[in-house]
Design a protein around this nucleic acid. Structure first.
Length: 288
DNA sequence: ACCCAGGCCATCT
DNA sequence: AGATGGCCTGGG
């Protein structure tokens, strides 16, 4: 059986919050409130009633393996409550941000997808980032068969309970699928050259993504198009180094506004990246 | 209603 | 410090 159903009863899991957090650009919240995304070739569909129910399907992969993958992907073995309780009691801003953002988690996403996505994200806005990534997948990704997931979900929830966004009919393309491609028609702007060059260096073996180990900042910053901020995002979201602390324009704004110009990430060794997510999402929520 | 400037999960030269 | 590109927002 290559499908599983899994329940998540956890105060520290909120699919809407995760989807809006800017760590993933291919999670789709659908009309009926369900969430759809791909993890590699594994198709995932999440519905919420009192708790979350996750349905996942991947051809040729055992149920046990899929479950293991998802536990890792959602970071379910980590106690986010404990992390929140480690916040310094005098930091009222972070306490409030974490309280409101308690459903946030740092996902364990595919490293290649994260590297490309965050190169695209530089000096960019989220609608445009999503659009470029969608075009990239649509043009170069591999067709995903959704029928297995659909029948699995409908067997459990009834006919018409399953929907799937058009944007997720293709996988995120591997370096091999992008070999020699000109990426000038994806709305990437000047970033297209960075990705073309990266594809070359990965295929030639000059850049060995599978061998990246924490800390990877120096290795990452050798890649053209990756500076300090994008490197930190890749460490946090792609290598799951929860101590990485990306300083984007929002965080800088937060630091000016609440922290006299500097948030001391050394107070939170090993978890500063999670604190960054709480602050980032909190400050953005104020604007909406 | 329309336009335009400015900013965006920055980095390169 | 100047350039890069498309999307969105806010002010005029």
């Amino acid at each position: 059986m290559s499908a599983i159903k899994m329940e998540i009863c956890n105060e520290y899991f909120d699919s809407k919050a995760i989807s809006d957090s800017g760590q993933c650009f291919r999670w789709y919240i659908q009309e009926d409130g369900s969430v759809a995304f791909l993890y590699g070739r594994c198709a995932v569909f999440v519905v919420q009633k009192d708790f979350y129910t996750v349905y996942a399907y991947e051809k040729g992969v055992s149920a046990k393996k899929i479950e293991e993958k998802l536990v890792r992907y959602f970071d379910l073995d980590r106690d986010y409550g404990e992390i929140i309780s480690s916040i310094r009691p005098d930091d009222k801003v972070l306490l409030k941000a974490a309280d409101e953002g308690r459903g946030l988690r740092i996902l364990n996403q595919d490293l290649w997808e994260i590297i490309v996505s965050f190169i695209i994200s530089q000096n960019n806005n989220i609608p445009r980032i999503k659009k470029s990534i969608y075009k990239l997948c649509e043009k170069y990704g591999e067709e995903v068969d959704i029928k297995g997931l659909k029948s699995f979900v409908e067997k459990d929830l009834g006919k018409g309970s399953f929907s799937w966004p058009l944007e997720l009919n293709k996988t995120f393309p591997t370096p091999q699928m992008l070999e020699g491609k000109i990426l000038d028609d994806l709305g990437l702007g000047y970033r297209d050259k960075y990705i073309e060059e990266l594809v070359c260096s990965v295929l030639s073996g000059e850049v060995k993504i599978d061998e990246f180990k924490i800390p990877a900042e120096d290795e990452l910053m050798k890649i053209k198009g990756i500076g300090k901020k994008v490197a930190a995002c890749i460490e946090l979201f792609g290598l799951h180094d929860l101590g990485a602390f990306p300083r984007d324009t929002w965080v800088k704004k937060i630091e000016e506004k609440y922290y006299n110009g500097r948030f001391e990430e050394n107070f939170y060794k090993g978890t500063a990246g999670i604190m960054q997510q709480y602050l980032f999402c909190y400050e953005r929520s104020l604007k909406k």
